[in-house]
Simulated assay, not measured.
Amino acid sequence: MLVVAAALIDPKGRVLVQRRKRSSEHGGLWEFPGGKVEPGETLPGALVRELAEELGIAIEPADLAALTFSTRLREDGRELALMLYSCRRWEGVPTALDAEAVAWHAPAGLGALDMPPLDIELARNAIPLLM
């Protein structure tokens, strides 16, 4: 299963994360926004779609840069690969349309957030690249 996520970086160098709905898997934890890649989608195309659905913002695929990735074997035996892209340009104001909240954090502060296991690994890998 392929999943894509974005480290949206504002002009102050802060990164946007969103808090998962309490009723969802990993509810209440902070994560990079994104979602599953649907059949026939490219990775950037899926991320553009997911960010529009989750945050109400428009992004051009050319504004996404591959940053890092993380993988994990799920309980059902399938491998989950989570690809993190960075993005510094978008249109609109990121709004929590499919989450409890969004917040901006300095890269160094990402490691202190309660995150799902794959996002913890992504944050650990991405922090040096974002600073």
Score class of each variant (00 low, 15 high):
E79S: 06
A65G: 00
A46Y: 09
G111M: 09
N125H: 03
K36D: 00
D63I: 03
P33M: 07
D63L: 08
L47E: 05
T68L: 03
T95I: 01
E91W: 07
L73V: 12
L113Q: 13
G34M: 03
G56H: 08
E50H: 14
R19L: 10
A7W: 08
P33W: 07
V93N: 01
A96P: 15
A96Q: 06
G28L: 04
K12G: 04
Y85N: 07
K12C: 09
R14Y: 06
G56V: 05
E100S: 09
V17L: 15
A123E: 09
P11V: 11
R72Y: 01
R49C: 10
G111L: 15
F32E: 04
H26I: 01
G56N: 07
P44K: 08
P107A: 13
I59R: 00
A5Y: 02
T95R: 12
A58T: 06
P117Q: 12
G92V: 09
C87Q: 07
G45Y: 09
A101H: 08
L110Q: 03
I9M: 10
E50W: 08
K36A: 04
F69P: 00
V4C: 10
L67R: 01
S24E: 04
E38H: 08
R49F: 10
G27K: 07
A96R: 07
D114K: 15
W90Y: 13
F69Q: 06
E50D: 07
E25S: 10
L97W: 03
D76M: 08
K12Y: 06
L82W: 04
P117H: 08
G27C: 06
G109V: 03
T68V: 13
A46N: 11
A112W: 13
E121N: 07
E25Q: 09
K21L: 15
E100T: 02
E38Y: 02
A81R: 15
I59D: 00
R89C: 03
V102L: 12
M115C: 12
M115K: 13
V37E: 03
T68G: 02
S86H: 07
V48H: 02
L51C: 05
I127W: 00
W30F: 09
R78Q: 13
R20E: 06
K12Q: 14
K21I: 09
R14Q: 14
P116V: 00
L16C: 14
N125Q: 13
I57E: 00
L118C: 08
T42A: 02
S23I: 11
L73N: 04
L110M: 11
E54T: 01
L84Q: 10
L47A: 09
R124A: 15
P11E: 13
R74Q: 06
